[in-house]
Amino acid sequence: MTTAVSDQDRLIPTQSGSLHVKEWTPDASGSLPPILLFHDSLGCVDLWRSFPARLAAATARRVVAYDRLGFGRSDPHPGTLPLDFVAAEARDIVPVLLGHLGIGEFVACGHSVGGGMAVETAARFPSRCRALVTIAAQAFVEDRTLAGIREAKEGFRDPAQFARLARYHGGKARWAVDAWTESWLSPAFAGWTLDTALAEVRCPVLALHGDRDEYGSAEHPTRIAAGRGTVRLLADTGHVPHRECEDTVVEAILSFLSEP
C-alpha cells in the first residue's frame, strides 16, 4: 500500500528576506527525524519535482525543502554571494529554519552545491544531524566542474533556455545564473573545499553520484564518504540522479536510513 502524503507551503522570515518552504508529511509519519533538502545552484522547491513526496512516502518521514534567498518563490537575495556562501547557509539560515519549523534532530540531504550545504549543516549540528546524504555533490573545485559551468554559462545566452529557467525564478533568474557561474569561476573561489567541515561530521554518510556526472568526478563522493560512510556510484547517470533514476535514489536513501 502506498503511504499518502500531504504537503504544505509557508513563508519563514529571516533578517534578509522571507524563505518559501514546503513540507511533505506522510500520514503514517511518527517520531523519525525529518529530512531537510538543500537544492542545487539553479534549483528551487519546484525543481525537486516528485522526489520529496516519493521520499516522504517511502521513508515515512516528514520532508522539508526550501528556496534559498534569490531562488524560486523566496525573496531576492540582498546582494552578491560571499565566498563562504556554502558554509554561510548552514551558519545563518539553517538555525532559523530549524527554529521556525520546530525541528530537533534531522537528516541533511543535498544536491550538488546543496550537498555541500548539507555537509556544512551536519558539521555545525553534530548532535542533531542523525544522517547525511549527498547527491552529486562537489567537495572541492575541480576542472570538470568549472568546464561544465562555463558550458552552462554559454548555454544561458540562448533566450529560450534562459526563459525556461525564469519560469521557476522569475525576475531573479539572472541573479541566480550570475551567482552560480561567477562565484565558482572566480579565482578567489579556487581553493574552496569541504575538508574542514567533513572533519567535523559525526553522523553516517551516504554519497550518491552518477558515473556520467558532467560537474564532478567520483573523487567528490569518495572524499565526502571517506571514513564516514558509503559511496554509491549510479550507472548511466548524470548530474541529477533524483530525476534521472528517482526510484533508485529513493530506494538507496531508504535502505541507508533503515540501517541499524
Rank of each mutant, 00 (worst) to 15 (best):
115 G>P: 13
130 R>G: 08
162 F>T: 00
105 E>L: 03
112 S>Q: 11
83 L>M: 13
150 R>A: 13
176 A>L: 06
188 A>Y: 05
121 T>R: 09
81 L>P: 02
125 F>Y: 14
77 H>S: 10
106 F>G: 04
69 L>I: 03
144 R>N: 11
175 W>K: 09
185 L>H: 07
99 G>I: 00
185 L>T: 07
112 S>A: 15
180 W>C: 14
184 W>Q: 06
109 C>S: 12
105 E>P: 13
78 P>W: 04
162 F>V: 02
195 D>W: 05
166 A>W: 05
92 D>K: 00
167 R>M: 14
123 A>K: 07
117 M>A: 08
115 G>C: 12
154 E>P: 00
136 A>M: 03
192 W>L: 11
155 G>P: 08
119 V>W: 09
130 R>E: 10
174 R>H: 11
135 I>A: 02
153 K>I: 07
169 H>T: 02
193 T>Y: 05
120 E>G: 05
152 A>W: 11
75 D>N: 06
105 E>Y: 01
136 A>K: 02
190 A>Q: 13
158 D>P: 04
173 A>I: 01
172 K>S: 04
82 P>N: 06
170 G>D: 05
170 G>Y: 06
118 A>C: 09
136 A>D: 14
192 W>K: 10
82 P>Q: 06
162 F>N: 00
133 V>Q: 03
118 A>E: 01
111 H>V: 11
183 S>G: 00
109 C>K: 01
113 V>A: 01
143 D>G: 08
158 D>F: 04
171 G>F: 00
109 C>A: 15
154 E>G: 10
184 W>H: 13
189 F>Q: 13
152 A>S: 14
83 L>F: 12
136 A>I: 07
160 A>K: 12
108 A>M: 08
80 T>M: 03
84 D>F: 07
173 A>S: 04
156 F>I: 04
193 T>G: 02
92 D>S: 11
85 F>V: 14
105 E>C: 11
78 P>A: 06
81 L>M: 09
120 E>C: 15
114 G>N: 01
87 A>Q: 15
188 A>M: 08
160 A>Y: 07
185 L>M: 09
184 W>C: 11
156 F>V: 12
190 A>I: 06
84 D>P: 12
122 A>W: 10
149 I>K: 02
105 E>F: 02
133 V>K: 02
170 G>K: 05
103 I>T: 09
84 D>T: 15
141 V>F: 09
